[in-house]
């Protein structure tokens, strides 16, 4: 969990992700951020994220991102 928040903080330092209920609805992540985030996750957790899994539900919270990493075969 901490690891995910760290990645997010590096991406958009101006936001407090721990306070957000929904990163997407709160406008914390735009198209450029999603691209960077996916490539960071792929590199860090050695997984390949399916493009079809790049949907708001999988990026709305740290829990959702962790679930996505596990679903894609990564360990966290």
């Amino acid at each position: 969990m901490e690891e995910i928040y760290k990645i997010l903080k590096d991406l958009r330092p101006e936001f407090d992700f721990t306070e957000s209920e929904d990163f997407v609805e709160d406008g914390f992540l735009d198209s450029f951020d999603i691209i960077s985030l996916v490539s960071t996750i792929e590199e860090k957790f050695n997984v390949k994220i399916d493009g079809l899994d790049v949907v708001p539900e999988n990026f709305c919270s740290a829990d959702a991102i962790i679930a996505l990493i596990r679903k894609s075969g990564g360990t966290i």
Binding site: V24, D30, S31, G51, V54, F59
Partner: peptide
């Protein structure tokens, strides 16, 4: 516009 962050959408 929000769909372009999630191209599948």
């Amino acid at each position: 516009p929000k769909y372009f962050a999630f191209p599948a959408r």
